Amino acid sequence: MSEFPGWHGTTIVAVRKGGEVVVAGDGQVSLGQTVIKGTARKVRRLQPGGAEIVAGFAGSTADAFTLLERLEAKLEATPGQLQRACVELAKDWRTDKYLQKLEAMLIVTDGAELYVVTGAGDVLEPEHDVTAIGSGGNYALAAARALIDQDLSAEDIARRAMAIAADICVYTNGSLTVERIGPR
């Protein structure tokens, strides 16, 4: 079996402040030490059954799209119940042999609730109204946590946190996709 270099990329940060949630993600996808694409769109607006959901993903793109499709199906089956849909997705992800092999993470919000969903069966709510995932996630998280008490909007915090992550993490760039969603 030959060894292929790992795909790296993605920093996603979510900030909840002032009645809105902003999810921002960079556009870089790397294979080993080579940038394959600089403008990937890893933050998406979903509208299952007319609901408004924003999701950002880190990890394998194909795996993330599979999870987004499954999440949309869960949201359609449980309208208006983001937490329940995320828990159901996490249960399936942990127990289904096919899904267990998926390598991705999600940040999901409806403007009122904010979750990180992982393949380990976790559905996590951030403690400090900030969360981040991906290769530069810890840098973006630290930056956003440091900025959250400043007189800045959620979007300004997310953009500044992503800029700091891009300055530190070689798998993160400054080509951002930013989606904003208000409270329900």
Rank of each mutant, 00 (worst) to 15 (best):
E3A: 12
F4C: 13
P5M: 14
W7H: 10
W7K: 13
H8T: 01
H8K: 08
T10H: 15
I12Q: 05
I12G: 00
A14P: 14
V15L: 07
V15P: 02
G18K: 11
G19Y: 08
E20A: 15
E20K: 15
E20T: 15
E20H: 15
V21L: 07
G25V: 01
G27Y: 05
G32K: 05
V35N: 05
V35F: 10
I36H: 14
I36Q: 12
K37E: 09
T39C: 12
K42W: 03
V43D: 06
V43W: 06
R44Q: 15
R45P: 04
R45L: 11
L46F: 09
L46R: 07
Q47N: 12
P48Y: 13
G49K: 08
G49D: 09
A51G: 13
F57K: 08
D63V: 02
D63A: 12
F65S: 01
F65L: 14
L68M: 11
E69V: 03
L71C: 09
L71H: 02
K74S: 09
E76Q: 15
A77L: 10
P79T: 06
P79H: 09
G80S: 07
Q81G: 14
Q83H: 11
A85I: 02
C86A: 13
E88I: 03
L89N: 03
A90T: 07
A90E: 08
W93C: 04
D96F: 06
K97Q: 12
L99N: 08
L99T: 04
L99V: 06
K101W: 14
L102D: 05
A104Q: 01
M105P: 04
L106T: 05
V108G: 01
V108L: 01
A112I: 06
A112V: 12
A112S: 13
V116Q: 14
V116W: 00
V117H: 10
T118P: 03
G121C: 10
D122W: 02
L124P: 04
E125M: 13
P126F: 11
E127K: 11
H128R: 08
H128N: 09
D129F: 07
V130S: 01
A132Q: 04
A132P: 02
I133M: 07
S135G: 11
N138R: 13
N138Q: 12
A140M: 02
A142K: 04
A143C: 09
A144T: 03
A144H: 07
R145H: 05
A146R: 10
I148D: 01
D149C: 07
D151V: 12
E155H: 08
A163D: 15
A163S: 14
I164V: 15
A165V: 04
A166Q: 00
D167Q: 06
D167P: 06
D167S: 07
I168R: 13
C169F: 01
C169L: 00
V170G: 00
V170E: 04
T172Y: 00
G174K: 10
L176C: 02
T177G: 03
E179N: 12
E179P: 05
R180Q: 11
I181N: 04
P183F: 13
R184E: 13
